Amino acid sequence: MDLLQTTLCYLEHNDCYLMLHRVKKKKDVNHDKWIGVGGKFEPGEDALTCALREVREETGLTMQNPQYRGIVDFYCSPWPAERMHLYTCTEFTGCMIDCNEGTLEWVPKEAVPDLPIWPGDKLFFRLLAEEAPFFHLELTYNGDSLTRAVLDGQEMAL
């Protein structure tokens, strides 16, 4: 099965994550959700190259020493299956710019679960908070509802 290859990055500063409130695009599967920064691979890119480019394009910031934290596979008909490469980064340079996909905001980490985020995001935020080793998370959705989660081959309770 061909998976759409994407990246998602969470920049961290002062116990906050840089979150993107997706409010600017029409017909956006993430409309009005709060997510990290990232996007689709361009031809010839690997995960790190894509992550660095997407963060720079969407925030104006350049990541220094991003940490590759895990792979998250999404399944939700009718959308194509997606493999998301998840990064965090505490060191970056540059000045923030306006994002054409939504509003960027530093959100305290403890407040993130209360935002309108995808249910599966709560699972990987927990893994990030627990400093989990590199993980593979498979998430299956029916619309906005998470119906199945598998972490490193083991079914998770929802």
Rank of each mutant, 00 (worst) to 15 (best):
D28S: 11
F125S: 03
R83A: 08
N14Y: 07
G102K: 01
G120R: 06
Q5C: 03
D46N: 15
E57C: 07
M63I: 08
D73I: 10
Y87I: 04
C50A: 15
G143W: 10
W34Q: 09
K24I: 00
T90A: 10
I97G: 03
D15E: 15
H21L: 15
V72R: 10
E105Y: 02
Y10A: 06
L115F: 02
V55N: 04
V23N: 15
F124Q: 07
E54S: 07
A129N: 10
H31F: 12
K25V: 12
N65G: 08
P43V: 06
L52R: 15
V150R: 04
L128K: 03
A111N: 14
G39N: 02
A149D: 02
C9R: 06
Q5R: 15
E12F: 02
G94T: 11
K109T: 00
L123Y: 00
A111G: 02
H136Y: 01
C76I: 05
I35P: 01
T7I: 04
R22K: 09
P119F: 02
D98W: 09
Q64W: 06
E101V: 01
V107M: 11
M156C: 13
P116V: 09
G94Y: 08
R22D: 09
E54R: 14
E110R: 14
P43F: 03
P108G: 02
P66R: 13
